[in-house]
């Protein structure tokens, strides 16, 4: 297995004047779940198409599992599984027939096809309903079946394009749980696109954030949060004068202050003690009723990135 499952260098794809993917350089280590985060139209799906060799890049290059996407796309598709924007299931066929078809495509011997189908459908609680035609199923069940299809031939790398999009919270949570268990059990690298930040935070070892085709951040969710970490203290109370705000801004641990609806907001420089600041506030004659230290999260980080780019 190569060290990096995916490696791109200045990967670019334009459609007319629109740069769908713009000089994307990223490395995805083998064996992890990599979350590709971005709003709708950011270039996530186009990136997957480029990595699968389904689209030619306008510029740059990419290697997937050590194979060049432009000259060895067949080798890549041989070793990957996909769940794209649509589940891609044949809804007139039964769940079993859908897996049978893809098992044949990947030349799995009949006994392996049968045992693997049972193993995956059992795990996803779909075995009892395998004979039913897929169109009678809920969207959540279809997505689970599509995940089973993507993993059927034990690929080294799986592309999942917004797997929980359109699912209700219960189905999405269930699918996320299954994805986490299956990916760790199968030891597969997962490239997952999503605009659901909770999903990325919960599932992914690493995330990349893309906006208008450009990669704007990449790293472990916690690292990214720490990098962007500007801890904020929110103090509810009265008497926050302009003089107090000036005094606070002069403190080395404070980067910014603001007052909104009887709440004093203080942006801090790193993880510092706020006791001296509270003493200063109380000493200035202001009354303090409640103190809340914000926990910045991926969502806040994501929004900051999107706003920064705007």
């Amino acid at each position: 297995m190569t060290e990096f499952a995916i490696r791109t260098e200045n990967l670019t794809r334009s459609f007319g004047t629109v740069q769908a993917v713009d000089k994307l350089t990223v490395e995805v280590p083998s064996g992890i779940i990599f979350g590709f985060l971005g709003p709708n139209g950011a270039g996530k799906t186009t990136t997957i198409h480029l990595l699968l060799g389904l689209l030619e890049p306008t510029d740059g290059q990419a290697k997937v599992l050590g194979f060049d996407t432009q000259t060895q796309a067949d080798e890549i598709r041989q070793r990957t599984g996909v769940l794209l924007e649509h589940s891609g299931l044949y809804e007139r066929l039964s769940a079993e027939d859908n897996l049978e078809f893809y098992g044949r495509i990947w030349h799995l011997p009949p006994p392996t096809r049968k045992s693997r189908t049972k193993e995956l459908l059992d795990h996803l609680c779909l075995w009892e309903r395998r004979k039913e035609t897929v169109w009678t199923w809920s969207r959540g069940m279809k997505q689970k079946l599509a995940v089973a299809r993507a993993l059927l031939h034990r690929p080294s790398l799986v592309f999942l394009d917004e797997p929980t999009a359109g699912l209700d919270p219960v189905a999405a949570t269930s699918l996320r749980r299954d994805l986490a268990v299956l990916s760790s059990r199968e030891g597969v690298t997962v490239f997952l696109t999503t605009h659901n930040l909770a999903e990325a935070e919960q599932l992914c070892h690493q995330v990349g954030v893309i906006r208008e085709g450009k990669l704007v951040a990449v790293g472990c969710p916690n690292e990214l949060w720490a990098r962007n970490d500007a801890p904020r203290v929110e103090i509810a109370g009265h008497g926050f004068s302009e003089k107090l705000l000036v005094l606070l801004r002069d403190r080395p641990e404070v980067t910014a202050t603001d007052v909104q609806d009887s709440r004093l907001l203080i942006d801090l420089r790193g993880d510092v003690s706020i006791a001296p600041l509270i003493s200063l506030i109380v000493g200035s004659g202001a009354s303090v009723e409640e103190i809340h230290r914000d926990e910045a999260d991926l969502e806040e980080f994501f929004l900051t990135l999107m706003e920064a780019e705007n």
């Binding site: 067949d74 598709r77 794209l84 649509h86 589940s87 891609g88 044949y90 809804e91 495509i105 592309f159």
Partner: peptide, 12 residues
């Protein structure tokens, strides 16, 4: 029926 993309992404 949105099955073409997945078929094209297979090894066929």
């Amino acid at each position: 029926r949105h099955t073409l993309e997945t078929l094209l992404a297979s090894r066929l």
